[in-house]
Nucleic acid binder design. Structure first.
Length: 559
DNA sequence: CGGTTTTGACCGGCGC
DNA sequence: GCGCCGGTCAAAACCG
């Protein structure tokens, strides 16, 4: 900030110098000085951003400390309860865990579980406080190491979900010995007891295969012919962990049979295979964005007209967050929405333009939902510019390898996106962040000043956007700096977010797999493919992907 | 033989 | 209350 102030002072001086000049020479000089002023102004702005970045780092460190402290406390509580009465403890966990989980980051000061607060109340609380979303997400990852009841709450951050649902799921603390059926039914009971919005994330992908391989392992448990669509809708349940509540629906688009609509619901409570992490993170981020938006607006947007859209363009990455209350519209009000009273759904439209349809290269990451009228309440447009495809890639293949990729290891849980040892990971991270946040260094690409301003404004002024963006970044960044224990504890929501968003250290971008070129018609979920990995200063291009896994056997898991 | 898929039945929510 | 519809269950079939 000092630098920024200093620069500002210089600017003022320059302005004063210009004023006196009256003749032609003075005019030229003034013109020159005017340019100089602009330059200085830009520098000052960069300095501010740099300072902001620094503060965010500090804030993140603080949050991480609080987070770890709370995690330890939580572990102690769980252990004590388990000792006192195994059966009762389980029962209580079903009630307490959500609270415990939600305690973490944003409410770092509270170290004791609020047992007097029921889940619903907590949810209402989260409706009010955006940080609740992020908190739960983050804390859940830390619970991963536990086997048994506490394990169920882990890794929620990596899955598509909303905080409310996560709360519900968090309350599903079950003894390990209970059978799956019982657990699922109890889950339903819990959800019924807590009638809250269940965020869904719908992903539209142009895909030839029956289902999109998102890296997760699914078991089909039903199929229905939905009204208005001749194509049957298939219901899948995550089978990576027997207690995982995550479900997805797969259905062909009625308008275009080539488009596959996959709707995710729920939160994974287990470590995810790397191949599944990106999709899970993406959907999680989308869900978080959806929820953060809805939490402020209270109601879902009902139409594109009159619906406000909060968005930011980070060098080709567009975030669209529609929100009724926040009438900020930073970029491209591209939204068509429909009300969604029961199931707020966010649609990630990966079908647009430049992508290779057959191989499912997701060059465009457009969260727009013109074709999901029933549930769509929020549109996120991650559409990248043609020249700047989204840097993230997720892959489909290697689904069956999840067990070895992400062992149920205490030291490697959550959506720890391990990238082996790519030497340029940090560069990638920084590049990405430079894309997200105006950096102190001159942009490699000429980014319109108003774009930077808009992005900055979006980050700093819109809580909903902050929350959503934080979640998105969290999901992308995954678990770094905490020993691979899952998500970093971004504090999301509220005014704190803009300060706490800090990307430092390694940048565990996921990716993983063989490109779709060799994947034939397998529809992989992992292709936010980006162009040649050569451009050193463009993060999107920088994101090269690990290719550790053999071609997928996708059909085994989700067809 | 264990896991997955299929598919008809069942259930709950919602609108009328 | 009834019917529609989405979603889930669960037994049987299927598969490696």
């Amino acid at each position: 900030m000092e630098a920024a102030l200093g620069k500002s002072g210089e600017v003022v001086k320059e302005e004063k110098r210009v004023e006196p000049s009256g003749d032609e020479q003075g005019y030229k000089e003034g013109n020159f000085l005017f340019k100089d002023i602009k330059l200085e102004s830009a520098k000052a702005e960069m300095g501010e951003v740099r300072e902001e970045n620094h503060r965010l780092k500090m804030h993140l460190n603080r949050i991480m400390k609080d987070y770890q402290t709370l995690q330890m406390q939580f572990d102690n509580i769980v252990k004590q309860e388990a000792k006192e009465s195994p059966i009762i403890a389980h029962t209580q966990e079903a009630i307490d865990e959500p609270e415990l989980i939600s305690l973490s980051l944003g409410r770092s000061t509270s170290s004791e579980p609020r047992k007097d607060q029921n889940p619903r109340k907590l949810k209402e609380d989260q409706e009010v406080h955006d940080e609740g979303l992020a908190l739960r997400l983050d804390s859940s990852a830390f619970e991963m190491p536990k086997i048994g009841p506490s394990t169920e709450n882990s890794l929620k951050a990596t899955s598509p979900e909303n905080s409310l649902e996560a709360n519900k799921e968090a309350s599903e603390g079950w003894p390990p010995h209970k059978v799956l059926k019982t657990m699922r039914r109890e889950d339903d009971e819990v959800s019924e007891q807590n009638p809250v919005k269940k965020a869904r994330v719908s992903v539209r992908v142009r895909c030839d295969t029956p289902t999109m391989n998102d890296g997760c392992q699914w078991r089909k448990y039903g199929q229905k012919i939905a009204k208005g669509n001749p194509c049957p809708r298939a219901y899948y349940r995550c089978t990576v962990a027997p207690t995982c509540p995550v479900r997805k629906q797969v259905q062909r688009c009625a308008e275009d049979m080539g488009i596959l609509i996959t709707t995710y619901e729920g939160t994974h409570n287990h470590p995810l295979p790397i191949s599944a992490t990106v999709m899970a993170s993406t959907t999680s981020a989308a869900a978080a964005m959806l929820l953060s938006g809805s939490s402020t607006s209270g109601t879902a947007p009902t139409s594109s007209v009159g619906t406000t859209t909060s968005s930011a363009n980070f060098r080709g990455l567009n975030f669209y967050l529609s929100d009724n209350l926040n009438s900020k519209q930073y970029y491209l009000p591209n939204s068509s929405m429909s009300s969604a009273p029961s199931h707020p759904t966010i649609t990630l439209d990966l079908t647009s333009t430049s992508s290779s349809s057959s191989s499912c290269h997701f060059n465009n990451f457009s969260l727009n939902s013109p074709l999901a009228p029933r549930y769509s309440s929020t549109n996120l447009n991650f559409s990248s510019l043609e020249s700047n495809p989204l840097p993230i890639s997720w892959s489909s293949s290697g689904v069956h390898n999840y067990g070895t990729q992400v062992p149920y290891n205490k030291n490697q849980v959550g959506n720890s996106l391990n990238f082996g040892s790519k030497p340029n990971q940090e560069n990638m991270i920084h590049s990405f962040m430079q894309n997200l946040i105006p950096s102190s260094s001159p942009p490699q690409q000429n980014l319109p000043a108003d774009t930077i301003a808009a992005a900055t404004k979006a980050i700093t002024s819109d809580p909903s956007f902050q929350s959503a963006l934080a979640t998105a970044l969290t999901s992308i960044i995954g678990s770094n700096g905490n020993g691979g224990r899952g998500n970093l504890g971004f504090q999301i929501g509220g005014e704190n977010f803009s300060k706490s968003l800090n990307i430092g250290g390694t940048f565990p971008v996921v990716s993983s797999f063989p490109s779709t070129a060799t994947n034939g018609n397998k529809c992989s979920s992992s292709y936010l493919n980006i162009g040649p990995p050569s451009a050193p200063n463009s993060l999107p291009s920088n994101l090269t992907f690990l290719q550790p896994l053999p071609p997928p056997s996708a059909d085994k898991f989700s067809t």
